[in-house]
Design a protein around this nucleic acid. Structure first.
Lengths: 155, 155
DNA sequence: TATTGTTATACTCTATAACTATA
DNA sequence: TATAGTTATAGAGTATAACAATA
C-alpha cells in the first residue's frame, strides 16, 4: 500500500507527464488534436460504443464527448448506428476513413516520442506503458458496459 | 531503442494518464488549480528561479508562466526579488505562505491518488514515479540555468 | 420520473502578437 | 539588435445548466 509521500511524488511526476503530453499535442496536425485521436482510439480498441461509454473512457463530461463525436462525424471518421436496445442512444463506430486518420495520428505521436526516447531500452518503454495502463485502470472501472447492460435488459 | 509500435502504445497510455491527471485536477480546491501547484512545486524543488526557467520546467509559453506567477504573487505565495545579474528579469521565490499552500495541495493530490492506489505495492508506485521522471527528463534538458549562465556572465 | 444525448453559455488554460525595458 | 517579461486578444478544451426524446 502506497504511503502519502510516495503518492505526493507520483502526483508531481504526473504533472510532468501532463507537460509531456501537451508537448506531443502541440506537434499534432491541427485537424487531429489529441482529443480527437483519443476518441478514435477508444472506438478502435473497444469497437461499437455509446456516448456514455466514451465519456467514461475519456473521463470527461458527456457534453464534451458529444462535441468531440460530432467533430468526428462531420469529417466522416465516425458513424452513428441506431442502438437496438435503447432508442435514446446510438452506437458509434469508427469508419474506414477514421481508421486511416487514427493510424496516421498514432504514427505522428509515436514519432515525437521516439525522437526523445532514442536511448530508452524496449523494456522500460513497455513497463512504463504497463504501469500507466494499470494507473488508468485503478481510477474506476472504465470498461464499456454497452453490451452487458443493454442485452440483459432486452433479453 | 524503442520501436514505433511501442511508442504508439505509450502515446495511448499517456493520453490515459492525462485523463487521470485531469481527474485529480477536478478534485483540487478552486483556489489552487493544478497549474498553480505546478509553479509552487517547481519553486520549492529548485529554489530561486527566473520566469524563463519556470517556462522550461512547465513546458508552456512564457506568457502563460507570467500569468501563473502573477496569480501566485497576488496571493502572497511567491515573491519577486531583483535579479542582480540581469535587470530585465527577477528571481522568483516561494514564500512561507506559498510553502503552506503547496504542502496542503500536495496532501490533497496525494489523498486522491491514495484513494485509488490502495492495492498498489510501494515498489510499483516508486517505479512509475521514476519512469515518469525519466520521461520528463528525456523531453529536453529542463534543468534551470539561472545560476550557471548569470554567474558566469557576471563573474 | 429518470436517463441519454445535444446545445448554449461561461470558465480555464494556452498561444500569438504587440509592447516595454534592459542587455 | 536581441532577449526577459507583461499584457491584450484569440482559440482550444471543459463544465454547468437547460432542453428534447426515450425508458
Amino acid at each position: 500500500m502506497a504511503d502519502r509521500e510516495q503518492c505526493a511524488e507520483l502526483a508531481h511526476q504526473l504533472r510532468g507527464a501532463f507537460a509531456v503530453t501537451r508537448e506531443i499535442a502541440r506537434r499534432m496536425p491541427p485537424q487531429t488534436p489529441l482529443t480527437a485521436v483519443a476518441v478514435l482510439s477508444a472506438l478502435d480498441r473497444h469497437g461499437e460504443l455509446r456516448s456514455s461509454d466514451l465519456t467514461e473512457l475519456l473521463a470527461v463530461d458527456l457534453s464534451v464527448t458529444s462535441r468531440h463525436v460530432a467533430y468526428g462525424v462531420e469529417r466522416g471518421w465516425i458513424e452513428r448506428a441506431p442502438d437496438p436496445y435503447d432508442g435514446r442512444s446510438r452506437l458509434l463506430r469508427l469508419t474506414a476513413a477514421g481508421g486511416d486518420v487514427l493510424r496516421a495520428s498514432s504514427t505522428r505521436a509515436a514519432e515525437v516520442l521516439a525522437d526523445h526516447l532514442a536511448d530508452w531500452p524496449d523494456d522500460d518503454v513497455a513497463q512504463l506503458s504497463a504501469l500507466l495502463a494499470r494507473l488508468r485502470g485503478s481510477f474506476g472501472d472504465h470498461t464499456p458496459r454497452t453490451p452487458r447492460i443493454s442485452r440483459v435488459h432486452a433479453g
